[in-house]
């Protein structure tokens, strides 16, 4: 098992950015554990800690894409284990809505995905990042990054 985890993915191309919104109580700690145990995963992921995935707002997801993310992971506690009772279930519904919104502007809904793990699942964190990295790499960079973002204001 450990040997599998130690297999490296090789350096990730610079052109893939994945933002991971992680719950303080589970996925953030799992990512910490993955680091401590030297589990390898692609460095395309950038972690943003949330107090709970219930804090996740649709605007956070959209802001990430608008500012150049190619994919967004939302990583919360196992269902039924939320520190705040049901924050992860609220996040799950918002992620589904976020996928609908992305589809409405022509972005692939697979670019945003919810994951669940406990703080002890460093292995799962590494695996989740690999899954997301593979999905986003297959889709390619976000079309929003091709034209230069318009930063003007009326």
């Amino acid at each position: 098992m450990l040997a599998d985890e130690m297999k490296t993915e090789g350096p990730a191309p610079d052109d893939i950015n994945i933002v991971a919104f992680c719950c303080h109580y589970c996925a953030y700690a799992a990512a910490d554990m993955a680091g401590s145990l030297r589990f390898q995963y692609p460095d395309s992921v950038k972690v943003v800690k949330l107090p709970c995935t219930g804090k996740l707002d649709l605007q956070l997801i959209l802001d990430a894409f608008e500012k150049g993310a190619d994919g967004v992971m939302v990583a919360g506690c196992m269902e039924g284990d939320c520190h705040y009772q049901q924050g992860n279930l609220n996040a799950k519904r918002r992620v589904v809505h976020g996928q609908t919104l992305l589809a409405s502007i022509g972005l692939e809904p697979e670019r945003v995905r919810m994951f669940n793990m406990s703080s002890a699942m460093g292995n799962r964190w590494a695996e989740a990042v690999r899954e997301m990295d593979a999905t986003v790499r297959k889709l390619g960079p976000s079309p929003l990054r091709r034209p230069k973002a318009n930063e003007g204001t009326p």
């Binding site: 608008e66 022509g106 034209p147 318009n150």
Partner: peptide, 15 residues
């Protein structure tokens, strides 16, 4: 956000 991104996807960015 959606309007900005949709316009950018169409290659006609709007503020």
């Amino acid at each position: 956000s959606l309007l900005r991104m949709a316009a950018q996807m169409d290659g006609q960015p709007a503020a």
